[in-house]
């Protein structure tokens, strides 16, 4: 269990985390989603006690992490994969840090096997690929068999196999009753894994709800309709609950009416339809929309330009 309360972190003039409050519960995977610079890593660093909060508190299993009697066995975390000494082997890296809670060789080898690094356990970590480094970081997080696991962008640099593996791992960790907290800046990465979603943008919580609710809330269906008589159709569909927009290709995008209603309306008025499609927005789109105003770093090319109506 992770409980964050009124947590704020300022770096000089930048407010990286702005009074956020949330709880991460055991037994499920909680996705921590936000665009670049939203404050995910900063929040995680404060939970770990690496960064000192400007104000507010973060508790792990009911107390500040600093007070944990065996920290590595209470919260296993991976912040950056490459937080290792390049000159030390993977096995010695785990052995050294694990020694703080009395971890022995057999446990180290067990964890190395779990993440698939047995063959390179004796190799210097400096020579590891991004994916191998990521696996070593996950091994460190699991080393103490902790009830709380916190991973910052764990799928970064993993190949499709690795991504599948991580998804399975996160689910099984949660199924064992652990608290699993995973950050990402892509909805597609947590869509199939997370049971609960916390969305952060510019240091503020934008959504904190079960994944199912988020999906339901964001699947406001839209209908795309193409007709040679678009103008008349648009006039006929107009109403207080209905929003009609014209897309690039001249089709109408209708919000507030179903495909069936649009089709029947057209037939009743003798309007020819060339196309009538139900459009379910992707979760990615819903997430982007939610965080649109809070994106810190916009690309230099205006992203709206390409899709402007």
């Amino acid at each position: 269990m992770i409980e964050v309360s009124e947590l704020t972190k300022r770096f000089g003039a930048v407010t990286a985390v702005d009074g956020i409050t949330f709880t991460v519960r055991p037994g499920i995977v909680t996705g921590f989603l936000g665009p670049n610079g939203a404050g995910k890593s900063t929040t995680m660093r404060m939970i770990l006690g690496l960064d000192r909060p400007t104000s507010g508190t973060a508790h792990v299993n009911g107390r500040p992490f600093r007070q944990a009697p065996a920290p590595l066995a209470e919260l296993g975390a991976m912040l950056e994969a490459k937080a290792v000494d390049k000159g030390r082997s993977a096995r010695n890296h785990l052995r050294a840090v694990g020694a703080t809670i009395g971890v022995g060789r057999s446990r180290v080898d067990e964890v190395l096997a779990m993440v698939g690094l047995t063959d390179v356990a004796g190799k210097h970590a400096g020579g590891f690929s991004l994916g191998m480094g990521q696996r070593l970081g996950i091994a460190m997080a699991l080393l103490g068999d902790p009830p709380v696991v916190m991973l910052d962008e764990p799928v970064n640099g993993l190949d499709p196999d690795g991504i599948l593996w991580i998804r399975g791992l996160l689910k099984s960790l949660a199924a064992e009753g652990r608290t699993v907290f995973v950050s990402s800046h892509l909805m597609s990465e947590v869509e199939q894994t997370a049971d609960h979603l916390i969305v952060i943008g510019r240091g503020r919580i934008l959504a904190d709800m079960p994944m199912g609710d988020f999906i339901r809330q964001s699947s406001q269906h839209r209908v795309s309709v193409m007709s040679p008589d678009a103008t008349r159709l648009a006039e006929l569909m107009a109403g207080p609950e209905v929003v009609v927009a014209t897309a690039d290709d001249g089709s109408l995008v209708v919000e507030g009416l179903g495909a069936r209603e649009v089709g029947e309306l057209a037939a009743a008025n003798g309007i020819v339809l060339h196309q009538l499609v139900d459009v379910a927005p992707s979760l990615e789109a819903a997430f982007m929309e939610l965080t649109a105003e809070s994106v810190v770093f916009h690309g230099s090319v205006d992203q709206q330009a390409g899709s402007a109506a």
Partner: peptide
């Protein structure tokens, strides 16, 4: 320099 300190301090937050 290597960033290992963050792992170390996560294991020994005091």
């Amino acid at each position: 320099a290597s960033g290992l300190i963050r792992t170390t301090f996560s294991a020994v937050p005091r």
